[in-house]
Design a binder for these strands. Structure first.
Lengths: 259, 259
DNA sequence: TTTTATATGATTGACTCCAATCATATAAAA
DNA sequence: TTTTATATGATTGGAGTCAATCATATAAAA
C-alpha cells in the first residue's frame, strides 16, 4: 500500500528526533513509537543513516555525533582514512603539558580521539567548543578539559557566537587545531559565518595555529574567508605537495605537515 | 584460572575508557581490543554497568551520559519512576518563551527530555551547564540552546568552576531548575564543592528558582549548603507533605509542587 | 480512468547475541 | 603447603536481529 511521500518524510524526521533525544533506541522500541512494522523501521533507518545524523548498530541506532564510530571503522594499516592519519600527525604536535584549543568538526574530533592514546600527558589543558570532542576527552588521563560557552549550533554540535568569542578572551593557547571547509590559493575558508567569525577571533589567541584539512577540501572556496596562508603556523593534510601546487598553494616546508 | 584482582580492575577501567572514547562499542570489538573472551567481556560489562558510567545495549555498550536510555525504561503509566513525574511537573512550569536555566544531574536531564515533548515553544532560550541536557536539547524545535563555559567535571558531565560562574553574570533567567543531593530542615545541600558554589552563584540570577529532588534525598544532609527554603521559589518532588513534615520541612503551599 | 511505481507488512533462513552451565587454572587465604 | 575462592573460556539452547523476497494496496503518473 503506497503511502504519501510526505508522510514518509515526516516519519523519518520524527525518527531522527527520537534517536537524537534518546541517544540510542532499539528497533523494537522504534516500532512501538512509530507504530509501523519492523521492516519499515529498518528501511527508515537505512534511509536516515544515508543522510548522516545516525549510526546503525546491531539492534538499534545511535545519534551520530555522540559516537562517530570512527575508531571502529578506521581500522589500522593502509586502509586507514585520511582523517585518522591527519589526527595522528596533529597529536604528535601536541606538547605534554600546556594549553591547546580543539575546534569543532569531524577531523578535529579524530584528533581528540587520537589524543586519548597519548599516555605521557601531564596536566595538558584542552579547551574546546565542540561537544563531541568534550565527550571524547572527558576523563582522559592527564587532560584538564575546559569547554567554551556559547550558542549551540545544531549541525556542528559546537558552541559559537558572541559568548564563545568573549570567552576566548580569557585564554591564551600554546597551539590551536582548527578545521576548515575549503582551501585554495588565498587561504582557508568556511561556509558558516558563525564558524568563520569565531575562528578569526581565535587566531590572535594562539601561539601556533594548525589547520587540519583533508585533500577533499583542496581547491574548494567557500564564502567566508578565515585565514591566509601567512597567518597560519602549519597545514596538516594528506594532500601531496604537487596537489597543493596544482591548487595554487605554495607553503614553506616548515608550514606543511603531510600526514 | 584465577587472575590477580588488580589486572581485572585495570582491564575494566580500560573498558570504561574505550567506551567513553568511542561512545559505543560492539561486544566483538571489545573482545578484540581487550584480548579476552566474549564471556569475560559480558561479565565486565555487567560489572562496569553496575558502577554507572555505561549502559549496555543489545550487541554492545554505550557511554552513559550520552543516553541515559531513560525514556526506554521509563515506560508510561503507573510504574513510571519519580524522576519522570518530577520532570513533567517541572516542564509544566516552563513558559512558552523567555529564558530558563537547566542544571546538571539526571533529574534535570529528565526535564530536558520532557521539554522536547512540548510543541508550543517559541524561541525559548535554554541555558545549561550540562552536556547531557545539551545533547538532548540540541535541535529541539522552538529552543535556542546556550551552553555555559567552564571546567569539565567528569563525574557529572557538567561545566563548573570560575569560568562557569563568570559566564553566569551575562544572564538573567526567568526560571532556573536545579538538582540537589540532599534536603533537610535547613534546606538543600550538595556533596560537591564546585556544584554547591556554582548553584549559590546562580541563585541571584534567576527570578524563580525551582529545585527538583526525588524523595530518596529526604533527610539526607551533605557537606555543602546550597540554599535555605526561604531562598527557593519551589520544590518539585514526589515526596508527600507528611514525608516532608517528618523530615522537619515545612513549606508554604505555593512553594510545594507534588509530582 | 488506467497504468505504473512504490511503500508496506509478512515470511523465511541465516546469523548474532545472550545467559546459564561447567571444567579448569590459579590467586588468595588458611 | 594445603585449601578455598574465583576469574576465565568453551559450550549450548533459546531468543533476537537482519537482509531478501513476495504479495498487496494505494499514491502518483499517464
Amino acid at each position: 500500500m503506497r503511502v504519501p511521500q510526505e508522510l514518509v518524510d515526516l516519519r523519518r524526521e520524527e525518527l531522527r528526533r527520537l534517536i537524537r533525544r534518546d541517544g540510542f533506541l532499539p528497533v523494537a522500541e522504534i516500532c512501538r513509537r512509530l507504530a509501523v512494522s519492523e521492516a519499515t523501521v529498518r528501511r527508515d533507518l537505512v534511509a536516515v543513516e544515508a543522510n548522516g545524523h545516525i549510526t546503525r548498530t546491531y539492534g538499534g541506532a545511535l545519534a551520530d555525533y555522540n559516537s562517530s564510530f570512527a575508531s571502529v571503522t578506521e581500522r589500522s594499516g593502509r586502509a586507514r582514512p585520511a582523517k585518522a592519519r591527519i589526527a595522528e600527525c596533529a597529536v604528535a604536535q601536541i606538547p605534554r603539558t600546556g594549553t591547546i584549543f580543539l575546534d569543532a568538526g569531524t577531523t578535529i574530533e579524530a584528533v581528540a580521539r587520537a589524543l586519548t592514546h597519548r599516555r605521557d600527558l601531564t596536566r595538558l589543558a584542552v579547551v574546546t567548543n565542540s561537544l563531541a570532542a568534550a565527550t571524547v576527552l572527558g576523563g582522559a588521563t592527564g587532560v584538564e578539559l575546559h569547554v567554551l560557552g556559547g550558542m549551540f549550533l545544531n549541525r556542528q554540535a559546537a558552541l559559537m557566537g558572541a559568548q564563545a568569542i568573549k570567552a576566548l578572551g580569557d585564554w591564551s593557547f600554546d597551539a590551536a587545531f582548527l578545521a576548515g571547509e575549503g582551501m585554495d590559493a588565498a587561504g582557508i575558508s568556511n561556509s558558516h559565518e558563525h564558524i568563520a567569525g569565531f575562528q578569526r577571533a581565535l587566531l590572535p589567541q594562539a601561539q601556533r595555529v594548525c589547520f587540519c584539512l583533508d585533500a577533499s577540501k583542496l581547491g574548494r572556496a567557500t564564502p567566508h574567508r578565515v585565514a591566509t596562508w601567512r597567518q597560519l603556523s602549519a597545514l596538516i593534510t594528506d594532500a601531496s605537495t604537487s596537489q597543493l601546487v596544482a591548487a595554487g598553494i605554495r607553503l614553506p616546508a616548515n608550514k606543511y605537515l603531510q600526514a
